[in-house]
């Protein structure tokens, strides 16, 4: 029996009436396979606009795969994805993506500012180069994540937490409506974790939709208002207060979970 302790949310937090809004991301019958072995099976998912949603599930549950398929990085063998009712290809500019920190080579010869500037490439399109406007936006994003003093530093000279902040700044600079983040809290120190979650909550407050692959079950009720349980199939999705319970945790992780709420 695994036990997770959860600090109860302070009561002043206002519930966002998420279900009243539009559907930001819609996934229908999505099946994804590696070498003909399905890693995601027949996923149906509706993500309402304005939620801060965690995707949780055990290792190999297909959490990253789900995000990558929504973003067109992986090609599904069946099913479809729409962003505000249209295919992803037509809605790229509405979406920002933070890949796993470990997915890139941090010894790449470039600076923190330059990495953040990459967030502007999408709106520039092919061939056109970033100019002063893009640089200004990148500097503002660096400021927002508290990394301005490190703008000229080579990225391998940054700590894990700082690298994650750079990735977050790169997503912020895209000025998107929907943010997808693959384990943004992996290998970061406590201060950075708080700084990141505050920025994510701010994004939600301004009406953005934020979808986060998350590992730490203990912080789910504290950080997120919406949750999706995933283990190859979708187990459940909905508001944290309604569906974050023993039943769904057990169904997802296959072991008995007991949620104990600490007053």
């Amino acid at each position: 029996m695994n036990r997770i302790k959860i600090m109860k949310e302070p009561s002043e937090k206002k519930e966002i009436p998420a279900s009243a809004g539009r559907i930001a991301v819609q996934v229908d019958d999505l099946t994804v396979a590696y070498n003909y072995k399905p890693v995601l099976w027949d996923i149906d998912l509706e993500i309402p606009e304005g939620v801060l949603m965690a995707i949780v599930g055990p290792n190999g549950a297909g959490k990253s795969t789900l995000i990558k398929s929504i973003l067109g990085i992986l090609k599904p063998i069946a099913g479809s994805v729409s962003i505000y009712g249209k295919p992803y290809d037509q809605q790229r500019k509405l979406v920002a993506y933070v890949p796993q920190k470990g997915s890139v080579d941090w010894d790449f010869p470039t600076t923190a500012l330059d990495v953040v500037m990459m967030g502007t490439y999408g709106s520039l399109g092919w061939i056109k180069r970033p100019g002063q406007k893009e640089k200004k936006a990148a500097l503002e994003a660096l400021e927002k994540v508290g990394m301005l003093p490190f703008k000229s530093r080579q990225i391998s000279q940054l700590s894990g937490g700082q690298q994650q902040r750079i990735f977050l700044a790169r997503a912020l600079v895209q000025d998107a409506s929907i943010y997808f983040m693959d384990e943004p809290f992996q290998g970061v120190d406590a201060t950075t974790e708080i700084a990141i979650i505050n920025i994510l909550k701010e994004l939600r407050k301004s009406g953005k939709t934020v979808i986060v692959v998350h590992h730490d079950l203990q912080t789910v009720p504290e950080y997120f208002d919406w949750v999706t349980f995933l283990n190859v199939k979708k187990i459940a999705t909905g508001p944290v207060k309604d569906i974050f319970n023993d039943d769904n945790l057990t169904k997802t992780y296959g072991i008995n979970y007991k949620v104990s709420i600490q007053e």
């Binding site: 973003l71 990085i73 290809d89 790229r92 990459m118 999408g122």
Partner: peptide, 11 residues
């Protein structure tokens, strides 16, 4: 540097 981001941005 980041093929995943490049793909998501349409490059």
């Amino acid at each position: 540097f980041d093929a995943g981001l490049a793909a998501s941005l349409g490059f």
